[in-house]
């Protein structure tokens, strides 16, 4: 068997182990390469910068726990920037695990910044209905959420008394592994003009890029890379920056296997042509 044939018949597990080990390497020996900041991330940060203390922001956690590997850094960074500016937060979710993500990653930053529950932030949790829910909370939040995530009466929460519909919110930020960015753009931005900021997974960045380019989405972060840039912009490198070298290695491995696959393919073609 020639080298090319052996290459073409490589066991998939060899590739998987190579992937895992090369991705793990930068966690043991960090590369620490510099990273240019994109205009998307700068715009995202400056849009948040423009908020004043006391402004209310709707944070929509439209991701499951699995997507935290990708957007966790961005979640913590946003919580840090909003709490540093004294911005109030109302959290909702169109995904069942979204409220868990808020509780595990966003809330600890707010509480350590001295935020008071019900006054400075509220977690309303999950509500079914996707786009229907997003359209409804714009009109009457307490009708959809008569109780918050912890089971408190929503009417008893001072923040929700003041922020019961779209008019009270300066902007919406959605952490999105699905289609929520499009839903918010359709139901909040198009109808009421509320700016929508999106932190999508990298794959969804492509879907939502035309919305951002057309102005339906005010600012956008490019998945984990965008989150790493945003962390740097607010001066708090964290989860996303820790993972960016490993991400580089992983993508290098994919490119290397694309090249190897094509070498094997071309070699096989040449061999057949000779025969």
């Amino acid at each position: 068997m020639s080298a090319l044939e052996r290459l073409a018949k490589m066991d998939r597990r060899v590739m998987y182990w190579a992937m895992l080990l090369l991705i793990a390497l930068p966690y043991a020996v960090p590369l620490g390469l510099p990273m240019q900041i994109s205009t998307y991330s700068t715009e995202f940060k400056t849009t948040i910068d423009a908020l004043a203390p006391g402004d209310v922001v709707l944070v929509s956690m439209d991701i499951g726990l699995g997507s935290v590997s990708e957007l966790g850094g961005g979640i913590i960074a946003l919580a840090k920037q909003l709490s540093a500016q004294g911005v109030k937060v109302v959290a909702v979710s169109t995904v069942a695990e979204g409220s868990l993500v808020f509780d595990q990653y966003f809330r600890p930053v707010l509480t350590s910044a001295g935020y008071g529950y019900g006054v400075d932030y509220v977690n309303l949790g999950y509500a079914a209905g996707d786009e229907t829910m997003i359209a409804s909370i714009a009109e009457n939040m307490r009708e959809v959420y008569s109780r918050d995530y912890a089971g408190n009466d929503a009417a008893s929460l001072p923040l929700l008394q003041a922020a019961d519909d779209y008019s009270a919110y300066r902007l919406v930020v959605t952490f999105d592994a699905g289609t929520a960015t499009g839903f918010y753009a359709r139901q909040w931005q198009a109808k009421y003009g509320t700016p929508v900021l999106s932190v999508p997974t990298a794959v969804n960045f492509s879907y939502f890029y035309p919305l951002y380019q057309a102005g339906s989405v005010e600012a956008i972060l490019n998945g984990p890379r965008g989150c790493a840039e945003y962390e740097q912009l607010i001066g708090a490198p964290g989860l996303a920056n820790q993972g960016i070298d490993a991400l580089s290695m992983g993508q290098l491995v994919v490119i290397a296997f694309i090249v190897l696959g094509n070498v094997a393919f071309v070699g096989e073609r040449l061999r057949r042509r000779k025969q």
Binding site: M19, L20, I23, A24, Y27, A28, G66, V68, S69, E70, T201, A202, V203, F205, S206, G223, P224, R225, Q242, G243, A246, L247, G250, Q251, V254
Partner: peptide
Amino acid sequence: LFFGAMFGQVAMTRITYITGRAQLLVQ
């Protein structure tokens, strides 16, 4: 061209799942 760009983005999304696990194992 769009599909190619999409694939590049998909790879980034899916690799981050592995990076999270690799970080846990190394830690």
